[in-house]
Amino acid sequence: MKILCYFINSDWYFDLHWLDRAYAAQKKGYQVHIITRFSGTTFINKFTKMGFICHPISLKERSINPIGFICSSIKIFYLLYKIRPDIIHSITIKPILLGGLYAKIAKKSFVANIVGLGRVFDTKGFIFGLFKNLTLSVYKIIISNKKSCFVFEHDEDKNTLMKSINFGPRQTAVIDGAGVDTTLFLYQQEKRNNTPIVFFAGRMLNNKGLDTLVKLRRELKEININFDLVVAGIEVKDDPQAIPTQLLKQWRDNEDILWLGMRNDIQQLITESNIVALPTTYPEGVPRILIEACAIGRACIAYNSGGCKSIVKNDINGYLIEKNNYLLLKEKMISLLNDYELRVLMGVNGRALVTEKFSSNKIIGETINIYKNIL
């Protein structure tokens, strides 16, 4: 039995984006291990019941403490040595750096998933420039392992890295996001709500654009164009970009937003909405919330950041706005709020796009093929 080891920053992120692929690999005969930081017992119990072998670690996603990173690296290298995986599949920068170096040394097959290049590549300044150059140097070492493959969620990130790294002919692939189960996320035509509902979901980070939607709602309310802003997501306590809890409470108390916190019924929340909005400036992969929204048949509006343009096709299934062009965002939001028939048409187009490019069966098949190829 081949051993497949997923190495990822957090338990909830694996559950949301990778669980279907891990389960499909298990059904194909792989023994699946998960190395991640577990918060509590919810996910470790869930994954264990599914037959996965879990390995909790304490690697911090955003810490830049070099001593802590070295100590964590030694522990993870020893853990990988004990697991002896045939394939290491790492997601996000730190797991890619550590998993990739171990795979190079141990001559193991390795998959690096680039789910957006991240702040290391997007943020200006000396420190981030230093980290960027260091990351690129390690990526070059990793790619010298001929049994390695870098998987991107969209061509833009792939083209950016190819300017600095000489990948081999079979060492890159593009897989369009996480994919959704189109039998679970069924198309449902939106209801004509008296007050339209705009839905936002994601991590509570400033650069995800929630403050932009709060400002927009206030301004439109002044000219008697009203919508309810429903917000669900995860608070991030240890991130410099985190929206303070107190600000979320203030927006809630002022009725700027309907704050739901972390929810497990995103499908139902999308169904009840009229528009899904993500004016993010974060260097995204392909945002899952936009894929799910299109699958259900909701018009989307987003900034052209990272992989948003892979799922939002301007004037077809929503509006893709030049990043930080607030006036255009406002104009197009008004168009969507005032035109039910347009939203319905965009919803139908979005569903067709997801069926063609973003179904979970397609994404799973492409991922399993990569495992076969690098072995």
Rank of each mutant, 00 (worst) to 15 (best):
K249Y: 06
G118M: 15
C149F: 00
W251K: 04
F167H: 00
I234H: 11
D339N: 15
R21W: 00
N145T: 01
K208E: 05
V348G: 04
S164K: 14
G233Q: 09
W18F: 12
F52K: 14
K215V: 09
F77R: 04
T41V: 02
G168H: 03
C71N: 12
K163S: 14
T195N: 12
G179I: 11
V151N: 06
I197E: 01
I243K: 06
L205Q: 05
K221V: 01
C54Q: 02
G347F: 10
V138D: 10
T123Y: 04
F43L: 09
F14I: 11
I114R: 00
T367Y: 12
D339V: 07
L229P: 12
F126V: 09
N145R: 00
P279G: 13
V354M: 11
A352C: 11
F14H: 15
C54D: 02
Y303A: 08
N254T: 06
F38Y: 04
Q26E: 13
F128M: 11
T41C: 01
L210H: 11
F7G: 06
S305V: 09
N45T: 05
N325T: 06
T355S: 13
C149G: 01
S360R: 11
I96L: 08
I334H: 03
S73G: 15
A352W: 10
T36S: 10
K82V: 06
K158E: 03
E341K: 15
A295F: 13
L375T: 08
R217C: 06
A242E: 13
D122H: 13
G118A: 14
G100R: 00
G116N: 15
N361T: 15
F121T: 09
G118W: 15
P169N: 02
Q31S: 11
V138E: 14
L336H: 03
S39F: 02
L184W: 07
D86T: 13
V230L: 12
K107I: 01
F38L: 03
I57W: 09
E153T: 07
N206A: 07
Q189A: 03
G347N: 04
W251I: 02
K215R: 13
K158M: 07
L328Y: 07
D176Q: 08
K330L: 07
G177T: 09
N349Y: 12
K82L: 10
G233M: 06
F69N: 07
N224M: 12
I88G: 00
F126W: 07
E222P: 03
A22M: 11
Q26K: 15
V214P: 15
